[in-house]
């Protein structure tokens, strides 16, 4: 089979053991056509679909490695099965769907757009995120939301240890069990308006369920100021 083929209206790109630079160049060329793209035989390779432009529909068959969809600027990316570390890291805009599980640091330092993980996600979901939404249908791993500046992490299935650790203005919403909280977290009862905002994110994903018992986690803001005279605030870290 040739490396770039056409199937119906799709452009099909073979990964296999080709140099990742070549694969990404083919992907960028295909993006310029405006046609849907299907990337096949991905072999869990790292760095597939980095820095993709706006108005692109791309599907990765099978599983992918690290940094898939990293620095995305608007593409609609679908990963059929699992992804490695830091899917959608630094992404500014666009939509990423992960059909299976996501590895560590899903959506690390992302700025905008939405990541939707259908399975569980590994540790440090949304670490250092600056905006956008991460929706995980399963459980999010330990230390998720670590120092999230802005944006929302929404876990429908629960959260691991040290959840929502040391947040800035990011929010972590969990519908299931939380194994333990991180430092400086306030767990608050969301208002109906806030729940409506989250449902508006879940609605296009078909995930709204009014019976959920949400816990919304925000910063306690005790670590925001170094000038604290409260020594115990420092001993907790």
């Amino acid at each position: 089979m040739s490396e770039v083929a056409e199937r119906m209206d799709e452009i099909v790109i073979e990964v296999g053991k080709r140099h990742i630079r070549e694969v990404n160049r083919d992907i960028m060329d295909a993006c310029a056509t405006g046609r849907p793209i299907r990337v096949v035989n991905t072999l869990s390779r790292h760095n597939l679909g980095v820095g993709l432009p706006d108005n692109v529909d791309i599907t990765f068959e099978g599983s992918v490695g690290y940094y898939c969809g990293g620095l995305n600027t608007g593409a609609n990316i679908s990963i059929e099965r699992n992804c490695g570390w830091a899917v959608g890291e630094g992404m500014a805009k666009g939509h990423i769907t992960v059909g299976g599980y996501a590895g560590m640091s899903c959506g690390a330092a992302m700025i905008g757009g939405t990541i939707h993980v259908k399975g569980d996600a590994g540790p440090r979901v949304g670490v250092a995120m600056k905006g956008g939404n991460i929706v995980v249908e399963g459980k999010i791993g330990y230390q998720s939301g670590f120092m999230a500046h802005s944006g929302r992490i929404i876990a429908l299935g629960g959260a691991g240890e040290s959840c929502a650790d040391a947040l800035w203005e990011g929010e972590v919403w969990v519908a299931g069990e939380v194994d333990s909280l991180g430092v400086d977290v306030d767990v608050i009862e969301p208002t109906a308006e806030e729940v409506a905002e989250v449902d508006a994110i879940l609605e296009p994903l078909g995930l709204v369920d009014s019976s959920r018992n949400w816990r919304k986690m925000v910063s306690g803001q005790r670590l925001w100021y170094f000038e604290s005279r409260d020594a115990s605030a420092w001993l907790m870290i």
Binding site: R21, N47, V50, G65, Y66, Y67, G70
Partner: peptide
Amino acid sequence: VKIEELRI
């Protein structure tokens, strides 16, 4: 891997 990502 990260360096390769930045190169791409």
